[in-house]
Design a protein around this nucleic acid. Sequence first.
DNA 1: GTAATAGTGTCTGTAAGACATTATTTA
DNA 2: TAAATAATGTCTTACAGACACTATTAC
Lengths: 232, 232
Amino acid sequence: MSTHYTTPAVSVDIVLLTLKNQSLHVALHQRQQDPFSGALALPGGYIHTEEDTDLEATAKRVLQQKTGLTPRYLEQLRCFAGPVRDPRGWSVAISYVALIPLEALEQSGNGIFHFFAVDALPALAFDHAAQIQSAVQRVRNKSSYSTLPCWLLPEAFTLTELQRTYEQIFGETLSRGTFRSRLGIKVSDVAPGEAADDAQLLIATDAMKGGAQRPARLFKVNQLGLFRRAWW
Amino acid sequence: MSTHYTTPAVSVDIVLLTLKNQSLHVALHQRQQDPFSGALALPGGYIHTEEDTDLEATAKRVLQQKTGLTPRYLEQLRCFAGPVRDPRGWSVAISYVALIPLEALEQSGNGIFHFFAVDALPALAFDHAAQIQSAVQRVRNKSSYSTLPCWLLPEAFTLTELQRTYEQIFGETLSRGTFRSRLGIKVSDVAPGEAADDAQLLIATDAMKGGAQRPARLFKVNQLGLFRRAWW
DNA sequence: GTAATAGTGTCTGTAAGACATTATTTA
DNA sequence: TAAATAATGTCTTACAGACACTATTAC
């Protein structure tokens, strides 16, 4: 190991995203300590080398401690590092993106976080604004060719609810026929409760969601699946 | 800062890729020190907090020291971390992908590195095999929808040379007509030496490359540009 | 019946991919 | 002339996107 060079501080920050009021929101809390005491910041923490088996474990532990929840989706974003992002000196932050449905957060009864629309952020501590921007870009991009948005919904959802989710992520509306053909789904053909193969994006359940109109089939996500072609 | 938890060691590793013998090759050197003394490994180094302005600067400095070169393309891949990847304990490696034409490496007369085909790797130190696999996946994926492969060629190249580069990255051949329409280029229409707009992927030079046949127009890359649709 | 949303079918434009054809050089 | 590669055009298929139509519930 290097001897005559200072080791930079290493931490993990989490961009926890959810859908609220028809748009992407990020979870922020008010810092209680310096630096940036009083400022809004992302949840984050240090690696506990005795217990954390990898960085994902660190991220999960931090979220568990602060929300009591495990996110439905968790993915490493990238490292942010340098001498100026933290006034205490050279630091490395490994940034994670987490997705969770708003219902889960509300049921946890957690009062630490406030949610802010990602397209209208207040001033933030450290380089957290850049981390959020980068995370949103990743989510929007990955949503354009995959089933990523499923993890912003509860486990079972209707196709229309899923379409609304895509629309809220992109901020624009889609054609229903196009949306369903991209998913490769004809509701009348699907057999509930089976996953034919890995290429199948969604799994039909045997439950329906009714309202004051024709009931809709409920689906679950099979896995993080890719569309044939990208969307743009 | 955390007090009663050990700070993990932080380093930067570089997956330096080039094209050799019709396929992607990675630069490896033989380690002189423990751990893994004698084993093949990626170039890497520690952060110098006094001089490095960010992680990209660290990566560039390490490459400069070991090859005397600045790569044509450099991008952060992701972090690899955990208690077992380095026998000395919990460590964090930030992995970078670098692209460079083989000619540049050969001209530098550097003797440290050996090049290995990425699809037939020997045993490697640390988790470097996983880093390489991840880097190759990133390069293949990004090549399917962008001008990334241009940075594996010298500054000026013909369209056929570029097509061969794509083919060598993917390991399969392409149709020439399709390739050119994806690039949006009709050679007879282009005006040398101008960049009409940012959407223009390549810039025509006024030079031609001749052989025992009709000479071909030489092009330069404009910027990292995206195709309209992905390729798969 | 109406209102409301679920689900499907049809048409059009664009682009990928295969392949044939023309163009321009050297020998 | 032949050989070799550059460059372009044509045809087919596939899919995104728009939009219209039918289906099934509550009231």
